[in-house]
Nucleic acid binder design. Sequence first.
DNA 1: GCACTTGCTTGCAAAATGCAAGTGCTTGCT
DNA 2: AGCAAGCACTTGCATTTTGCAAGCAAGTGC
Lengths: 153, 153
Amino acid sequence: MTAKAATSKSIQRSPCVVSNVLEIIGDRWTLLLVRDLLFFNKHEYKEFLASPENIATNILADRLKKLLNEGLVGEIIHPENKSRKLYYLTSKGKDLMPILLEMVKWGAAYLPETKEMKLIFERVKNDPELLKTQVLDSLEQWEKQMLKANGTA
Amino acid sequence: MTAKAATSKSIQRSPCVVSNVLEIIGDRWTLLLVRDLLFFNKHEYKEFLASPENIATNILADRLKKLLNEGLVGEIIHPENKSRKLYYLTSKGKDLMPILLEMVKWGAAYLPETKEMKLIFERVKNDPELLKTQVLDSLEQWEKQMLKANGTA
DNA sequence: GCACTTGCTTGCAAAATGCAAGTGCTTGCT
DNA sequence: AGCAAGCACTTGCATTTTGCAAGCAAGTGC
């Protein structure tokens, strides 16, 4: 195992919220998975692997485990294929969206423009609230299809 | 040297803003320094060392170097003591505040309550805009005293 | 001159990461 | 039923990053 699962219940090394939040999402990969789940409708292992950042399989497995442990993400087996799994954001995970959107805003202001994210750039700048509801609606849509039997998320 | 300075000009491994932002602030330490500079009026090396997270001296030196390289932070020698340095946030660095505040909000919602941050908790929840202007005013105050000769920040 | 502070650097052990190659389960095809 | 292929991982190992303790030069206070 690459790393032990860090639950929020484990001993905090700091009394500061920021520090404790960073213990969960403060690394190069975790928020990228949240991004994929939130904005790019990705739900499967292989889809995360296909992201442009090229996450290694061991890191991906490790981060998914942590996200599950933290309760940011849930999983089910694919209804049509037992050998596949579907990952989805819980409300705790979805609530990271404001953080991501602020990062997008900051990036839009200070980073060299990237074509691929121009779409979200514009939507964040024009009407962030609209974007949020659109994103959440889209996820709800998916959940209705895939999770209808469950009371999760 | 612990790590090479990663400028935003270096080759991006992804076209995604989130990814590129995380290359700058996506680690356990960088945002804690920004937090100290922004909310706790810390400006000196030894003050960062005194934070409850206990950053190691080599990591601190490395992160300060990176923050300077990225243009998030500026430095001057202490006007009254040549052997001390003063670090301060540029506007690029200050503009990370919304990200930090969203982290505080998320932490307030999902993390076990911590006494030490209750103050900022309340201020974020009650009136985020007021908090922002208060924080920025406080920094400006400091800058007027310390940086009066310079046109920086 | 001398002890002390300050902002680092250095050396080394431990941990996290990245890469390539498995492993075991399921599935589709014949 | 048999077999190749897909899928979600795991494993081993080299490289990189962290963490800790110790040092060190430049300045300051006496």
